[in-house]
Amino acid sequence: MIAPTKPSEQRIGVFVCHCGSNIAGMLDVEAVAEYAETLDNVVFVQRNLYTCSDPGQKEIKEAIKEHKLNRVVVASCTPRIHEPTFRACITETGLNPYLLEMANIREHCSWVHPNEWEGATEKAKVLVKSAVARAANLDKQKEMELPVTQTTLVIGGGIAGIVSALEIADGGNKVYLVEKKATIGGVMAQLYKTYPTMDCST
């Protein structure tokens, strides 16, 4: 097994979102935040009413600067919604976007365990612990940038192929329109009149 290495210089900041009452109304966010403080490598914990809001993001940015954070964990909603938001947010401070991790304590916790105050709180703690553990193992990543050849291949010369080829070509880019038959037109060329206006198809 590979034992995760825990470099001592890691400074993780944890931001626990109340999401109004969406999270704070179903579990003890204060307890979650207190627990986060006890975790390895965590040097800063803050609760926000809405972490994704402008004030929330501002708080993250300030904390990164003030506490020299080099990893950020946001415990809020699903990363499928706000991962891009928070990535962009930490990038503004010069931090690599891949040094962000999220703990989903809303969709996967507060919203689905509404009658389990204790259970939901405990689970939120574990999800934060898991996110912090992963964050400690995150590395900077560089996204590759590649040029795009300024031509397009359109396969099929029916109405859909013809229209897309024309649109792209009108935009000033070269298009290769490939059709397997000897003529373009596709099935539509065989039609006489078309609905709903009963006009000619060709």
């Binding site: 080829a165 024309l166 298009v175 290769y176 329109l177 490939v178 373009i184």
Partner: peptide
């Protein structure tokens, strides 16, 4: 259809099959 054959940016390749795309 005629627009396609006239368009300076469109190269029309009919009676053709895409053999490979990599």
């Amino acid at each position: 259809m005629m627009d396609v054959s006239r368009h300076p940016n469109i190269e029309l390749i009919t009676y053709a099959q895409v053999e490979n795309i990599a």
